[in-house]
């Protein structure tokens, strides 16, 4: 960039005293430059417009909506009276706010912890060399690639209390049938288990990549000092894997916070609101109760939490780049 600027600045000075015929090529050169710059900008204009319209506008619109009495009536009359922070007061004082906030936290922490621990164990397993390794590892991606609603439907049949295969299997072990999706005290656990299943492949893939990047020489040197097995893991693997771990965890958090499909497909937020999360609340206020203002307030709280983690993520990311 600096070279371009230099030439375009010095060129006129050089040519200031030049004979007339020199002006013509200069002008066309200049025109070519600006034409080229316009073309360059045109490469990004569609993407910039799209991001403004489909990400920027919704964020702004949600903030505006959350300060309005925005309901079905608005679509007929076009009127959405300003109500200030009333929607936020409604949200925070609603019976479901704290339970859904706690459920969001439990759902996110439980899912991430499970996905990460199992994912890391499987990634470490696949680091060994054996026949079919690559094939098995890539087939493992399947649960992650299926539409979430397909996963929900399948698990709903597996978890069915009376005749689902899981309870039939547990029955052969002498364990009583568990009302996975119908009892408020276990429904959240069941939803978390399904989400862990969906997230494992992603964790395995990224963590496997991280493990592969740790040079073998480190382990060889460590083995000479007696660091093998768990010792090698704590002193060699973990410190070297940390940048990848932070990315996986924070991406996981940001993606889990906004999960909607799995819960809607499995429990619809029930039974007795046991699986309500902030994302589900936002959806139901807007699209079931048609209280778009309240729904927008819920989703803004969700954005705020995501943003908090996004900042942590970007910082971790920057630190990783610096290293």
């Amino acid at each position: 960039m600096s070279t371009t600027r230099l030439t375009s600045e010095t060129a006129p000075a050089d040519r200031a005293g030049a004979p007339r015929r020199g002006t013509l090529p200069r002008r066309s050169l200049k025109r070519q430059f600006s034409k080229e710059n316009i073309t360059k900008v045109l490469f990004v204009v569609p993407a910039a417009l799209y991001i403004l319209l489909f990400f920027g506008y919704p964020v702004v619109k949600n903030i505006v909506m959350s300060l309005q009495d925005y309901t079905t009536k608005t679509f007929f009359t076009g009127e959405a009276p300003w109500v200030g922070i009333e929607n936020y007061v409604t949200v925070i004082s609603s019976n479901l706010f704290w339970p859904s906030l706690i459920n969001t936290a439990l759902f996110t922490i439980g899912s991430i912890a499970g996905q990460f621990v199992i994912g890391l164990a499987l990634a470490a397993f696949f680091k060994r060399r054996f026949p079919l390794n690559n094939f098995l590892r890539s087939m493992l991606l399947l649960p992650w690639l299926l539409p979430l609603i397909v996963a929900s439907a399948t698990w709903r049949s597996i978890l069915d209390q009376d005749s689902g295969i899981l309870n039939r299997f547990l029955g052969t072990l002498g364990i009583e049938a568990v009302p996975w999706l119908t009892d408020p005290s276990v429904a959240l656990t069941a939803v978390i288990l399904v989400n862990i299943w969906i997230g494992i492949p992603f964790n395995v893939t990224i963590l496997y990549g991280g493990l592969q990047d740790i040079p073998d020489e480190l382990y060889e040197a460590g083995a000479l000092d007696g660091a093998t097995g768990w010792k090698a893991f704590w002193h060699i693997t973990w410190p070297n894997l940390r940048p990848v771990v932070s990315v996986v965890l924070l991406l996981g958090v940001v993606y889990t916070l906004k999960v909607l499909d799995i819960i809607l497909g499995l429990t619809n937020g029930g039974p007795a609101n046991a699986t309500q999360t902030l994302a589900i609340r936002s959806y139901q206020e807007s699209f079931v109760n048609f209280e778009f203002g309240v729904g927008a307030a819920f989703s803004n709280i969700l954005i705020l939490i995501s943003l908090l983690f996004a900042i942590i993520y970007l910082r971790a990311n920057r630190r990783q780049v610096d290293e």
Binding site: A48, I51, F55, N62, A279, Y283, F292, L302, A310
Partner: peptide
């Protein structure tokens, strides 16, 4: 700045987009 905007846009919950698009699409 553009890259940061792209990364952040990946983090915006879909329900936020749906809320706004429903009114606009209507």
């Amino acid at each position: 700045v553009a890259l940061l905007a792209i990364i952040i846009s990946q983090m915006i919950p879909g329900i936020v987009i749906a809320n706004a698009l429903y009114a606009a699409y209507n």
